[in-house]
């Protein structure tokens, strides 16, 4: 079955993103497909490169990055939500990669259209946090 997942809370604010991660990891292990994970509202904080934490610290961004690498899933930070919260996003972000330097590996910035595309494609939509 094809899932679209929305994550709306920051990992510093609630458990919701950790729950979303466990759900996605389990769904993939059970043979389901995850069309896209869309990070909206405060959820965009899941995908920021956390330069300050030491390598042995647990980090939700690193968990998501590893999952994206292993399963080739699409992790999208909403570009307008990210801009609102001060993430430097150049018009050419997608091309140069420069403006995405704050974005953790495996994530990329895209618009709400990508979320609607996922909703339309998926068999099931599950959202976490708010």
């Amino acid at each position: 079955m094809k899932f679209a997942i929305q994550v709306n809370s920051s990992p510093y604010q609630s458990q919701a993103s950790a729950t979303a991660y466990q759900f996605v990891e389990t769904a993939l292990r059970k043979g389901h497909q995850v069309v896209r994970v869309f990070f909206y509202h405060e959820g965009i904080y899941n995908g920021l490169h956390d330069a300050a934490s030491a390598d042995d610290d647990w980090s939700i961004a690193r968990c998501w990055s590893a999952l994206a690498k292993d399963h080739d899933i699409d992790l999208v930070l909403c570009i307008s939500a990210a801009q609102q919260r001060g993430l430097p996003v150049a018009e050419t972000a997608g091309h140069t990669g420069k403006a995405e330097s704050n974005v953790a590996e495996g994530f990329h910035l895209a618009g709400l259209g990508q979320w609607v595309d996922a909703i339309i494609t998926a068999d099931r939509v599950v959202s976490f946090g708010g």
Binding site: Y40, S80, G111, L112, G113, W115, V116
Partner: peptide, 19 residues
């Protein structure tokens, strides 16, 4: 906060895709 505003952006985007 701006939660409602962002939610309405999503509402309008979904509507724009003829759902």
């Amino acid at each position: 906060g701006n939660h409602a505003h962002e939610t309405l952006d999503a509402v309008m985007t979904v509507a724009a895709f003829d759902q």
